[in-house]
Simulated assay, not measured.
Amino acid sequence: MDSQLYDIAYLIQFRDCVNANVSEAPIAWHLDHSLKVINKIHDVLKSSDSTVYEKRFNLVRSFSFTFGFIPRGRGESPGSVLPPNDIKTEDILSQLEIARENLSELSSLELNANFIHPVFGQLNKKQAKRFLKIHTKHHLKIIQDILRKE
């Protein structure tokens, strides 16, 4: 995920670019949202009770994790990870620094630290790390398409 965080840092300069054919949201929205997801999931994993984790099969998760892909326009983000209407560059930079710290701390969390994803169900630490990588890749690809089609 380090390379993805470097990509996020680089892309901040294009924060105001929009291409409605790709996404109604500007690049800043995708950057802010991606960082909020990383930081929120870290916080939930850190405070979770590892004894309540139950391994369960989830077909949608299996497909997404196998192919490393999230289809566009299918999911709806929970309010806790939605960017504000006014996204400040300094807030993105602050979240980026926190995300770097949080990602480095993930390895020290218990194996069955967990969180509930609205589509993929309960994810343990390993699955959560996989989800974060796929989710961030999803938004970086949208940003690439915004920039390519401007």
Rank of each mutant, 00 (worst) to 15 (best):
K40D: 15
K129C: 07
N85Q: 12
E110F: 04
S108P: 07
E110W: 00
K126H: 09
Q122G: 02
V60Y: 04
D16W: 08
Y53G: 02
N85I: 07
L132V: 02
Y6R: 14
S108R: 11
E101Q: 14
E150T: 06
E90S: 01
N58A: 06
A128L: 01
D91C: 02
F67D: 11
F131G: 04
M1E: 13
A113L: 04
D86R: 10
I98D: 07
L123C: 04
V22G: 05
S107K: 06
D43N: 13
N19H: 07
T89E: 15
A28F: 02
N124E: 14
E97K: 13
N102K: 11
R148T: 03
L35E: 10
L45E: 11
Y53I: 07
K137Y: 03
I41V: 14
R15D: 13
V44I: 12
I27L: 11
D7G: 03
F14S: 14
R72A: 03
D32G: 00
K46T: 15
Q122R: 03
K126V: 15
F65D: 01
R74T: 00
A9H: 05
I116Y: 10
N85M: 06
R74W: 00
N39L: 02
K126N: 14
S47A: 14
N112Y: 06
E54L: 07
P78N: 05
E76L: 04
H135G: 08
F131K: 02
L123K: 00
G79S: 15
E150I: 06
E54S: 08
F69D: 15
V119M: 09
I134M: 10
V37W: 04
P26F: 04
E97N: 11
K149S: 15
A9V: 04
E101T: 04
N112L: 11
L59N: 09
A28S: 13
R130H: 09
R74Q: 01
S62Q: 10
K125Q: 01
T51M: 08
T89H: 03
T51Y: 12
I38K: 01
Y6I: 05
Q127E: 15
A113I: 10
S47R: 13
I27V: 09
A99T: 03
I134W: 02
K141R: 14
L31T: 01
K55A: 05
F131A: 06
F63Y: 09
L45P: 10
N112H: 12
V44T: 13
V22E: 09
G73I: 00
S23V: 00
S34V: 07
V37A: 05
L140A: 08
I143C: 01
T51N: 12
D86V: 12
Q4S: 07
F67T: 14
R130D: 13
K126A: 14
R148W: 05
K55Q: 09
A28I: 00
F115E: 02
N102Q: 12
A99L: 05
S50R: 06
Y10T: 06
F57C: 12
S94E: 15
